[in-house]
Amino acid sequence: MAKVILGVGSSHSPTLLMEPPAWLARAGQDDVHIHALHDFEGARVSYEELLAKASPAILKEIEMDVLWKRHEANQKAVAEIRTILGEAKPDVILVIGDDHKEVFQDDNMPALSVYWGETLPYKPQGMMKWKYDQDLRATDWYPQEEREYPVASKLARSLIESLMQRDFDVAHSRHYQPEQGMSHSFGYVYYKMIEGDPIPIVPVSINTYYPPNQITPARAYNLGGAIREIIESWPANLRVAVIATGGLSHFVVDEDFDRRFLDIMATGTLEDHASLPREKLQSGNSEFRCWSALAGAVQGMKMDLIDYVPCYRSPAGTGCAMAFAVWH
């Protein structure tokens, strides 16, 4: 019988691909409303409103020596996850991620979708790209060659059928449009987590970002629980890792909320996830839902928090908080 032998939660921010001077350059976009900014109560605010309420102590958070220490902590945590995943030697990885209109658009935005084609395409030109001056080390998100990655297609189809039997309404895809490639959630796993030959994955996409059909945290948790049950019903003797990527708080760093959420991830119940204030789960914070799905899939397993790294980039407190954890 198949078994979930490892759970992994990781942020997937472009910040992980950049050095600190580029973080500060990216902060220059925050005051032109590139990203939706929400305050600590979840209200939509402008950069100017956020700056007016920000603590002067944040200035210390964006000093260059602090940024470099956090950059080093991020890279160390990613390397540790890569090592743990490599040592676990899973036969299959089920990845739970979200899409930023790389694949799904307003003409069709499913709350839940599973891809079950034989391979999953990576197309750099289809991914979101962040350009900076050459001296700030311009990077694409994620700078890989165009190629096809293996999908555990039969298992993905089995997952779809089994979720339907459990009253989850699942959209599905067997291929993308010619110009489309995988979402950044899955590109991150291939680029930063897997060493050596690609491991077949089962790609599960949930809509975290876009109203009105964002999956609720409770539904995400129950989805994760159903995924765990389905994996353990597979007849093959497979070692399966479940990975969720995204978050934590962004594009306004909220350390208190992040730490409370990590406590819930470690010991919380369905009721704890259901009680998360949805008004705070907007914009980048919406990706907490991917972690809630992971929590359902790793019930009864022990969480080890590798690191939590709040990466501020402006005096207004904008940035992205990184978290890295595993479950055994």
Rank of each mutant, 00 (worst) to 15 (best):
A2N: 02
K3M: 14
L6P: 01
L6R: 09
S11F: 06
P14V: 07
L16D: 14
L16T: 14
L17R: 05
P20H: 01
W23S: 02
A25N: 06
R26Q: 12
G28C: 08
H33V: 12
I34H: 14
I34W: 15
A36C: 10
H38P: 05
H38Y: 12
H38W: 05
F40W: 11
R44A: 14
V45R: 11
S46Q: 00
E49D: 06
E49P: 02
L51D: 02
I58L: 12
K60N: 14
E63H: 07
M64E: 12
D65E: 08
L67M: 00
W68T: 05
K69F: 12
E72W: 15
A79Y: 03
R82F: 01
I84N: 07
G86P: 03
P90R: 08
P90Q: 06
D91G: 11
D91T: 11
D91Q: 13
L94N: 06
L94C: 08
V95C: 15
I96Y: 09
G97C: 09
D98K: 02
D99Y: 14
D99L: 10
K101I: 11
K101T: 13
K101M: 14
F104Q: 01
F104P: 01
D106N: 15
M109I: 11
S113D: 07
S113W: 08
S113R: 05
L120V: 05
L120K: 04
W130H: 13
A138Y: 11
A138M: 08
T139E: 10
P143V: 04
E146P: 11
R147D: 14
E148N: 14
L155Q: 14
A156C: 10
I160N: 01
I160D: 02
E161D: 15
E161C: 04
S162A: 13
M164K: 15
D169A: 07
V170R: 06
S173I: 11
S173M: 15
R174K: 01
Y176L: 14
P178L: 01
Q180T: 08
G181Y: 02
H184R: 01
S185C: 00
G187Y: 03
G187N: 01
I199Q: 03
I201H: 05
S205W: 12
T208V: 09
P211R: 09
N213F: 08
Q214F: 03
R219A: 12
G224V: 05
G224N: 10
I227D: 09
R228V: 04
E232F: 02
R239M: 03
A241F: 07
H250G: 02
V252M: 04
F257L: 06
D263G: 10
D263L: 03
I264P: 01
M265G: 00
T267I: 11
T269L: 05
L270F: 11
A274N: 01
L276P: 05
P277T: 05
P277E: 09
K280T: 09
Q282W: 10
R289T: 13
S292L: 09
S292C: 15
A297D: 07
V298P: 06
Q299E: 15
G300H: 04
M301A: 00
M303P: 08
L305M: 08
Y308R: 07
C311H: 03
Y312T: 04
Y312N: 03
R313W: 13
S314D: 02
A316W: 07
G317N: 03
G319E: 07
G319Y: 09
C320H: 13
C320R: 03
H328D: 06
